[in-house]
């Protein structure tokens, strides 16, 4: 089972993603970070293979955390899950900073799992 860390300041989005991951059969959720700084700490302690991370969070935002994670850990695969996916500049910046894909909100379980399985 591949280990996934969920990073989102929204409790409800974290719950949705955790449920999708738990019911997938091939992924397991190792935790929920509420901002970018927590994500960097939990990447170190939980050692996930995949991180699903929001862009727009209070404190350290998702793109800042992505920049750090890309420099600190070459193995972890980051997918941004964001309502800003359709903003071309944000999408491009995320890919340039090392994100493997960007999932737009609102999302559907099938789409999330397809993208995670393609990593």
């Amino acid at each position: 089972m591949k280990k996934v860390l969920v990073v989102d300041d929204s409790l409800s989005v974290a719950r949705q993603l955790e449920k999708i991951i738990a019911e997938s059969g091939d992924f397991t959720c190792v935790g929920h970070a509420k901002n970018g700084a927590e994500a960097i700490k939990m990447n170190h302690t939980e050692n996930p293979e995949i991180i699903c991370m929001d862009m727009n969070m209070p404190g350290m935002d998702g793109l800042t955390a992505l920049r750090s994670l890309s420099a600190l850990d070459k193995d972890v695969k980051v997918v941004m899950v964001t309502s800003l996916g359709g903003v071309g500049d944000k999408f491009t910046e995320a890919l340039k900073l090392g994100a493997k894909n960007v999932i737009s909100k609102p999302f559907e379980a099938d789409n999330v799992l397809r993208i995670l399985r393609e990593l």
């Binding site: 999408f91 894909n101 737009s104 397809r114 393609e118």
Partner: peptide, 15 residues
């Protein structure tokens, strides 16, 4: 199910 731009649509759908 969201507003997208063409490049994003292509990558998200693995095209």
């Amino acid at each position: 199910m969201a507003v997208k731009f063409f490049g994003q649509y292509l990558v998200e759908n693995n095209l």
